[in-house]
C-alpha cells in the first residue's frame, strides 16, 4: 500500500501524480454519475439476455424476448396485405382490358405496379421505364408485341425468347451475314434508312428495295411496318431499339438480334403481374 497523500490547501486526497510540482487531486466522481454508470452496466447485462446480442459461430444469441427485425417486417407486410385484401381480390379477378375504366382499382394497380416495376423491371428498362439500347422504352407508343393491356400482361407473364416458359413469345431474325454479301447488306441498310429519313442515296436504296422484298418483307412487311405476331419491329418509324444509324443497322442485318426477357409468372404473384401490366400500360403508350 502506498501512503495516501493529502493536498495541503484543499485537504483532498491526491493521486500521487505530479507534473512540475503540480499535484493532481483525486476528486471522486459525483455519486449520481457513478450510480448512472452502474445502472447502465446492469441494464446492458439485462439487455443482452433479453435481446439478440452476442455473436456465436453461426448466428447470434436470439435473446429471451424472441425479438427479430425480420419477423417484425414480415408481420408488418402481412398486416399491410391484410388491409389491402379486398383490393387485391378484385384486382386478381378483374378483366384486364377494362381495368382503366375502374378508376379506384386502376389507381391502386398503378401504384402497386410502380413498386413492382422498380424492384423487378428497372434493372433493364430503367427506373423511369425509358429503356436502353436493346431494352425497349416503355413510355413511347411503339410496341414490338402489342401494347394493349392483354398483350402487356402476356409479355410480363411469359417473357420473350426464353427457355424457361414454353409459352414465351418467340421469333428469331436470321443472321443475314451468311445469306447476303456486303454490297447487298449495304443496299438494304440504305433502303431501311430511306423508310424513315430524307437523307439517303436513292440509287443504292432502289437496289436495297429488291433485297428487302426478297428477304425482309416476309416479317417486317412490304412497307416496313413490322408484325406484332412475330415481334418484328416497325422499321419505318422514328424509334430504334438498337439504333437507326447505318453502322448499327449493318450489324443488326449481318448478325441479327436476340433480345430476351424472363417470364415473371413463376416469380411474381398474380396481383403483382396484373399491377405491373397496368403500370406499364399507364406510362403513356398504352393502347
Amino acid at each position: 500500500m502506498t501512503e495516501r497523500k493529502k493536498d495541503d490547501v484543499t485537504g483532498i486526497e491526491t493521486t500521487g501524480h505530479s507534473w512540475d510540482g503540480i499535484e493532481e487531486l483525486n476528486t471522486p466522481l459525483p455519486r449520481w454519475w457513478l450510480w448512472t454508470l452502474y445502472l447502465t452496466i446492469v441494464w446492458a447485462i439485462g439487455y443482452t439476455i433479453a435481446y439478440p446480442a452476442w455473436p456465436m459461430i453461426s448466428g447470434a444469441t436470439t435473446g429471451l424476448m424472441g425479438w427479430s427485425t425480420r419477423a417484425n417486417i414480415a408481420a408488418d407486410i402481412k398486416a399491410h396485405e391484410g388491409r389491402n385484401a379486398d383490393l387485391v381480390a378484385s384486382l386478381v379477378s378483374a378483366d384486364m382490358q377494362t381495368l382503366p375504366a375502374n378508376a379506384d382499382l386502376n389507381r391502386y394497380a398503378i401504384a402497386r405496379g410502380g413498386a413492382v416495376f422498380r424492384a423487378n423491371c428497372s434493372q433493364c428498362h430503367g427506373s423511369g421505364a425509358a429503356g436502353a439500347k436493346g431494352y425497349p422504352n416503355l413510355l413511347d407508343d411503339d410496341w414490338l408485341w402489342g401494347g394493349d393491356m392483354a398483350a402487356i400482361d402476356y409479355t410480363v407473364r411469359h417473357g420473350i425468347r426464353n427457355d424457361l416458359d414454353d409459352d414465351a413469345r418467340y421469333s428469331q431474325m436470321p443472321a443475314f451475314g451468311d445469306i447476303l454479301d456486303r454490297p447487298q447488306i449495304d443496299a438494304v441498310v440504305e433502303y431501311v434508312v430511306s423508310l424513315s429519313s430524307d437523307e439517303f442515296d436513292a440509287g443504292v436504296a432502289d437496289t436495297g428495295a429488291e433485297v428487302y422484298a426478297d428477304n425482309c418483307s416476309v416479317c417486317h412487311g412490304d412497307a416496313g411496318l413490322g408484325d406484332r405476331e412475330l415481334g418484328a419491329p416497325n422499321i419505318a418509324d422514328a424509334i430504334w431499339l438498337y439504333g437507326g444509324d447505318r453502322a448499327t443497322l449493318y450489324t443488326t442485318v449481318e448478325k441479327s438480334r436476340f433480345g430476351v426477357m424472363p417470364p415473371w409468372g413463376p416469380r411474381l404473384s398474380e396481383a403483382d403481374i396484373r399491377a405491373v401490366s397496368a403500370y406499364v400500360h399507364s406510362l403513356g403508350g398504352g393502347e
Binding site: G126, S127, G128, L139, D141, D237, A238, G284
Partner: peptide, 18 residues
Amino acid sequence: PVRNPTYVTLSDGAVRNI
C-alpha cells in the same frame, strides 16, 4: 417535370415531355 427521361420520342418522331 418528369426528368427520367428528359423526353420521349414517339413513333412519328414527335417529342413528348411528361
